[in-house]
Design a protein around this nucleic acid. Structure first.
Lengths: 139, 139
DNA sequence: TTGAATGCAAAGTCTTTGCACTTCC
DNA sequence: GGAAGTGCAAAGACTTTGCATTCAA
């Protein structure tokens, strides 16, 4: 959202229509969004930038820690970088994504560390669940 | 390895030089291997199949549950499907991968289930660590 | 012998890049 | 005015496909 852009204005360059719209859409979505879905949302706002502009924009926003990219089952998803740690569950049939904030990493990290030998430092982790969403389950 | 191929022979088609070599290499590696590394290993054995053959072969082996594909940080990796559940830690600098078999999923699944509302069933999960390997740490 | 596997070339998809033009500060 | 952002076309990287040929069973 606007606030975020202003907060890091120095690092993020000029406030263009496309940039503001992308940040706005991802902020409202608050979860992983597929690039094509993002483009669809932009279209609804009558914003139809060239593909190369979108690629460049997403890359810039990612490099400046405004958004993060995740590749799940071969597809790229984007979301606003959030303060609270969370994970995702993805439907294996329709790719619907839900986020949840349970993370027991801190509880298990010590045991894990004992099992890892070739690494000096753990920086972060990813944890995704795969399942069947309610909608696909009823079909 | 040969055993695996014979075990599921009906599902996997003919035993070609390339197919046997791929399964053999992945069996010996016992961890995620990048497609390019796989091709390098094949080359060492003087096996240089066409790219399309490799794509087809990997797809077939994956479809028949001989191997599994993982996309990590935008790269595709392959490994032999193993009976024992395990996870990976990836070096953020050199992409070196190590596997470890600590998994506390069973301990935390119940709490996680309470936080998920739109899903009827959890099928599986992924869990990766990212860090700095000993080698890159010394540099 | 016969159908699966392969190589090759072409096509397809996605992403990046160079350059001239436009826009924001 | 000058640098950042954009569109367009071309190039690049990766993957798939069609078809004729080869090879395993």
């Amino acid at each position: 959202m606007e606030i975020s852009i202003k907060k890091k204005q120095l690092h993020i360059g000029r406030q263009t229509k496309t940039k503001k719209a992308i940040v706005d859409i991802l902020s409202k979505n608050c979860c992983l969004l597929h690039k094509n879905e993002l483009i669809e949302e932009l279209k609804k706002q009558k914003i139809t930038p060239n593909r190369s502009t979108i690629y460049r924009e997403l890359k810039t926003l990612e490099k400046n820690d405004f958004i993060s990219k995740s590749t799940i089952l071969g597809n790229d998803y984007y979301e606003i970088l959030q303060d609270h740690h969370h994970h995702h569950i993805i439907c294996l049939k329709c790719n619907k994504i839900e986020s949840f904030n349970a993370c027991k990493y801190n509880l298990i990290v010590n045991e894990i560390k004992n099992k890892i030998h070739g690494f000096a430092e753990i920086k972060n982790h990813s944890f995704e669940l795969f399942g069947i969403c309610n909608y696909c389950n009823k079909k």
